[in-house]
């Protein structure tokens, strides 16, 4: 059974103060997400991801089109008891403590009193905020707010969760934890729909992704299929003041800073690069995959289509 069915949702904002001009934030969008999927909603900043999520949450009203969530009309308020939502860069009532905030949201979602207490402790544990549950949110860091945001989204044990940029504002540890959490949710049989502008976040997690650009859906499918045409890259850093010719031969672009050298090259060349450094007895410091953001992805895609077909995508 499809859990999310977006049936041509479209949004045109009127912008300008005096003479309002229409600005299309979202072209008619058709999209279906099945139960139990982790679905990535990809697009560069300003592509219409947040608009889509706000439309689904009933925060803005569509110019036309409709949607069904969990098999019911999306404006049906009762559907929302089964849905969790984490807004982008969430901000909460800062005069409340984390515990009070969750209690309030639990009340609003209709979680009965006894369950509520237990659920709150559970989700606080899960996002790692148990120690600060009595601290007012005004004293929270950005990362802690993001965790509180995730806690409120899963508090009422929803069947379907929407996360808007769940990784933003988090350090690598935090990213990892959020990734793990989403995997757990998947194991619990929940459907996760999340938006991101970082390609690698989606690669690691998603069953399927949709790519949206300038308010238009560009493609839907498995991540690998969509990004196969784009070469993944790695960043190699070693100690040294110069670039050995063998590295240059690999086609790496190198930057020397002080006594470290940084080179970015195609992932397929990674082993050759390590061998080359070993031969030169250079001390390797780090190899990290370069996270391709969707902007780069699109630039690359555009370049490809221009060179091969000679027309725009």
């Amino acid at each position: 059974m499809p859990v999310i069915e977006i049936l041509g949702l479209e949004k045109t904002y009127l912008v300008g103060f005096w003479r309002k001009r229409p600005k299309r934030a979202l072209h008619p969008l058709h999209l279906t997400v099945e139960e139990g999927e982790v679905f990535g909603f990809l697009g560069p900043n300003g592509a219409g991801k947040t608009t889509t999520l706000k439309l689904l949450m009933g925060l803005v009203f569509p110019t036309s089109g409709s949607a069904r969530l969990l098999g019911r009309d999306w404006t049906d308020p009762e559907v929302k008891a089964q849905i969790g939502f984490l807004p982008e860069q969430p901000y909460f009532y800062d005069y409340l403590t984390a515990h009070e905030l969750l209690n309030y949201y639990g009340q609003l979602s209709g979680v009965p009193g006894k369950d509520r207490k237990r659920r709150i402790d559970e989700v606080l544990q899960r996002v790692g905020l148990t120690d600060v549950k009595g601290v007012q949110l005004r004293k929270f860091s950005k990362g802690m707010l993001q965790r509180a945001g995730i806690a409120q989204a899963i508090l009422h044990d929803p069947k379907l969760v929407f996360f808007d940029e769940p990784m933003s504002g988090l350090d690598p540890m935090g990213r990892r934890e959020v990734r793990d959490l989403m995997e757990q949710l998947k194991h619990e049989g929940k459907t996760v729909f999340f938006s991101t502008h970082i390609l690698s976040d989606a690669e690691a997690l998603c069953d399927r992704v949709a790519i949206i650009h300038q308010g238009e859906l560009r493609s839907v499918g498995a991540v690998a299929d969509l990004t196969s045409s784009v070469q993944s890259k790695v960043e190699v850093i070693w100690q040294g003041r110069e670039v050995p010719p063998s590295m240059k031969a690999l086609g790496a672009e190198c930057h020397v800073t002080g006594d470290t050298v940084r080179a970015v090259l195609a992932e397929s060349q990674q082993d050759a690069a390590i061998d080359a450094l070993r031969r030169e007895r250079m001390r390797l410091i780090a190899i990290t995959p370069v996270r391709t953001s969707l902007e780069e992805y699109f630039i690359e895609k555009l370049q490809q289509s221009e060179t091969s077909v000679g027309s725009t995508a």
Binding site: K54, M57, G58, L59, P77, E78, K80, A81, I83, F85, P87, Q89, P90, Y91, F92, Y93, Y105, L108, S109, G110, G149, Q152, A153, H156
Partner: peptide, 12 residues
């Protein structure tokens, strides 16, 4: 402050 988002995305 967008505090409304997490309220109105509930059955309110």
């Amino acid at each position: 402050r967008r505090t409304l988002y997490t309220v109105l995305s509930r059955p309110v």
